[in-house]
Every structure is written in C-alpha cells, then in structure tokens.
Nucleic acid binder design. Structure first.
Length: 423
RNA sequence: GGAGAGAUGGCAGAGUGGUCGAAUGCGGCGGUCUCGAAAACCGUUGAUCCCUUUUGGGAUCCGGGGGUUCGAAUCCCCCUCUCUCCGCCA
C-alpha cells in the first residue's frame, strides 16, 4: 500500500512511475485524494462533537457529585442530540476510511525510476549471463522422460493421490531434493541468515500483510473451517513475523531464511508451462527475507542477487539475471530480478528465483516501522527472494547433467546427497 | 472436545462506572556526581489521526468486535488467544 502522503505531495511523479507499470492511475488518485479530504473533514466535525460530549459528561458528573441532580438531568437531555449526530458522523467517517483504503489498495507499488518500460517478458533487461550451456547429444530428453526412465518422479501416482501438479518423488530424486534444501539452508546460514521454521497455514491478516490478499486470494488454497490459508511461499509467514513491530535502527538488517513447502492453486496456467516440474501446486523452496533500513534496501537487493548467483554457480548451472520491466513486475514490487537457469533439453530458460525490493509497500500494510535517530517513526523496507525453488532446479540438474552412464550430481552437492550419480 | 480462570503501557503489576492514557516497580532515555563507570539522586518515558506556521489544542486506543450509560479499563453479549484440570493424540 502506497503512503498517502507520497500521493498528496507528488501526484505527477506518482502517475509517471505508475505508467512504467502500465497502470493509468489518474482517476483513482483523484478519488483517493478526494476521499482523504472527505475523511479529514468528517473527522474534524466528529472530533468536535465528541469533545463537546466529553465536556458535558464531565459537567454532569461534577453536578451529581455536588448533589445537584436536577441540573444534571437537565444537561442530560442536551446530550441526546449530540450523541445522535456523533453516531451519524462516525458512520460516515468509518465508511470513508474504508473506501479510502479500498481505493489505496488498488494502486500497485511504484517501480524504481530505473525500471525499464515494457509490457511483456520480451521487454525485460538481461543484466548478466554466466556459465556455458551444455552441448547435449541428440539423445538428450527432457526431465519428465528422465524421471520415468530412472523411476524418479511419478506424476500419475500424485494425480491419483491428490491431483495434477502434486508429483510423488522417489528414491534418489527425493534424496536429491532433501540435499538441495540442506545445501541452500547451510549456505544461507553461513551468509548470516537466521533459520526460521514457519507455519504453513496463515490467517487473513498475514495474507493481507504481504499482499496476497485481497488481490490474489484465488491463488491460495483456503481452509474455510478454520479460516486459514496455505502459504504460497515462506515469504508470507516470515515477513509477517514483523507485522505491527517497531524496530530500532540497530536491529537492521534482519536476515531470515526459511525452508517450506509452497502451495499454489495456479488458476489459469496451461500448456508447456505446466509440463513436468515446470509448474506445480505443491513444491519446496528456501526463501530469504530481509528487513532493511530504507537507505540500504537497494544495496541489500544487490547483495541478495549476488548471493543467489553464488548458489547457481556452485550448482554449475548456466544462468542469467533478468531485470523485470514495468509490465512484468508484480503488484507489490519496486524492483525485481529474476534468476533463470537454462534447461538444456527443453531448450528454454526457467525462472528459479525472483528477488524483489518492496520498499515500504508491504511495511505500510503491515505497520512495520522503526524509530530513527530523532525518534521519528519510519517505515522499514522489506525484500525477499527464492534461494532457491526446487522443482526447476531439479529439472535443470536432471536435464543438463544427463549422460549415457546416468545423471551426474554437481560436486558441491555430493556431500549432501551421499551419491555422485543417478543411474 | 468438556469445565474453570485470565488478557491492562517495553516487561511486571494495581485499578471493578466519573479529569484513568491509566498507580507502583523494573527497564529505556537525559542530567547531577565521577578521570570513567557503578551506586545514589533528579527529571523524562506509548501509538494513530485531526486542527494549528511555532507554541499548543482536540479525538481515539486497556486482546478484537458489538451493546448499556450523560459518562466504560471497570457492567452486558459475541469472538480470539493464554493458563489450569479432564478427554484425545504424533
């Protein structure tokens, strides 16, 4: 949620930045400012009214104490119309506030001024490319064929037990995934992240805090009996640890890492995007989350980007870093880098990580603040990134490392898997 | 799941209808003292919003929501959470 003051102070600049995200904010910004004016005016009247009421109540109290019941009862009559007016005003006030918030929630986060303009992934900016794309023999096959050949992943079985998008992993690929999780966690811990094991179900307040609600509630699995949502990413519970928290400047930077399963309904996905491991309803991910001082959030973003690059390097996967254009960025992000790994048999880049700076957009929703040196309250900045999501990493490892003898495990992982080859 | 008790400021803890945003203690911050620190003493110590150029004034907040009342932390109803006992259980 944008800070209202920003809109009020620089409406033109806000409009221009929103245009980078292809969002025409002209109408809604006007609505927001008008609603805010109305809110203020209503509050002024309401406050005056309540103040009068308080004054009267005090007088009546004093009169009763002094034993002047008759006079007190006379004053009582005066309060009734005051009360009625207050009730009316407070109804208007609450309604206006709600309307204002609803409108404010419809406005996406402002992109950083450096964000490239554009509408589709083609307009994204490739900022880095690294590693050599393996030259596979003609006999090379995509991971779903490898999974069948070595009896690693059973999609049909998952379909029977749960449904499409819930594969069953078996044997060495199950161990490979467990190895990856531990590898990712150990690396993050060595980098100064605090490991967190969060709840997998969250309440509506948490979904709201990170921006899944109210806009994207159709993307989360929902347990209506208990009014809880299955997390689409550990970002939700971990970031929400800091909801309604007031930090000290010395608390920065807060660095958390969490492994979790992730649950996504992925309504509306289809085609080659959902083949094999490319898009699942349930998958595992290690997520890094940082809460930072506003002055350093962009250097933190770079640091996180470099950290994830190091993971891919260690896994010997060819990757590239893409800075998302305005049109491809999420509602809540101010800047996002996608990390993409080349999947040699599918001959395409697979997004394995998305690293974003949300600036104060989430913090404003969550009331995540800190006191600066002068004692003033300021909104903190939040960032997060996958480090990393497993399925596509597994897909790329299987595909890129296939040989006639079997699938080779990268050296860095061998201490974790306990084996060097899947055959 | 059943029965009972409770939820107050950073923490502990008083307050059971009338200047109570809230005693007191601890903690935090500032000062005196000290070469410095500790101790002691003095002062200070929440958030949000509105009006005001500053100073200042006002409203709201005692788990959350609703109600009674001229007036609610205090009374009533609903919900959530915590604790104790019973039941069930990895």
């Amino acid at each position: 949620m944008l800070v209202l003051q920003t809109i009020r102070e620089n409406p033109e600049e806000v409009l221009n930045l929103l245009a980078i995200k292809n969002f025409d904010g002209k109408e809604i910004l006007q609505t927001i400012l008008a609603l805010d004016d109305k809110r203020k005016e209503t509050q002024r009247m309401l406050d005056d009214n309540l103040a009068q009421g308080n004054l009267l109540a005090r007088e009546i109290g004093n009169l009763f104490k002094a034993g002047k019941a008759a006079e007190a009862n006379l004053l009582k009559e005066k309060t009734s119309e005051l009360k009625e007016l207050s009730k009316e005003l407070s109804t208007t006030f609450e309604m206006t506030k709600k309307e204002l918030e609803t409108a404010l929630l419809k406005v996406p986060n402002l992109p950083h001024p450096s964000i490239p303009r554009g509408k589709t992934p083609e307009d994204n900016e490739i900022v880095h490319e690294e590693g050599s794309i393996p030259d596979l023999p003609d006999s090379a096959v995509p991971h779903w064929d490898l999974a069948a050949r070595y009896d690693l992943i059973d999609f049909a079985l998952g379909n029977k037990i749960a449904g499409a998008g819930f594969p069953v992993y078996k044997g060495k690929v199950a161990r490979l995934q467990r190895a990856l999780i531990n590898f990712f966690l150990d690396r993050a811990i060595a980098e100064g992240y605090l490991e967190i094991q969060p709840p997998y179900l969250v309440n509506a307040d948490s979904g709201f805090g990170t921006g899944q609600l109210p806009d994207k509630d159709g993307q989360m699995y929902y347990a209506p009996v208990d009014d809880l949502y299955l997390i689409p990413t550990a970002e939700v519970p971990v970031t929400n640890m800091y909801r309604d928290v007031i930090l000290k400047e010395s608390d920065f930077p807060l660095k958390n890492v969490a492994y979790s399963s992730c649950f996504r309904r992925e309504a509306g996905s289809y085609g080659k995007d959902v083949r094999g491991l490319n898009r699942l309803h349930q998958f595992d991910k290690v997520e890094i989350v940082q809460v930072s001082h506003p002055d350093s959030s962009y250097s933190v973003l770079e640091e996180m980007k470099n950290y994830v690059s190091g993971l891919l390097r260690a896994l010997e996967l060819p990757f590239r870093i893409v800075k998302l254009c305005g049109g491809d960025m999420s509602f809540t992000s101010a800047m996002t880098y996608d990390m993409e790994v080349y999947s040699a048999a599918q001959k395409r880049w697979l997004e394995v990580s998305s690293i974003s700076n949300f600036e104060s957009f989430q913090a404003n929703r969550m009331k995540l603040r800190y006191k600066d040196e002068t004692g003033k309250m300021q909104l903190a900045h939040t960032l997060n990134g996958s480090a990393l999501a497993l399925p596509r990493i597994v897909a790329a490892l299987l595909e890129n490392n296939q040989t006639h003898e079997g699938i080779k495990i990268p050296e860095a992982l061998v201490p974790y898997t306990g084996f060097k080859i899947i055959d």
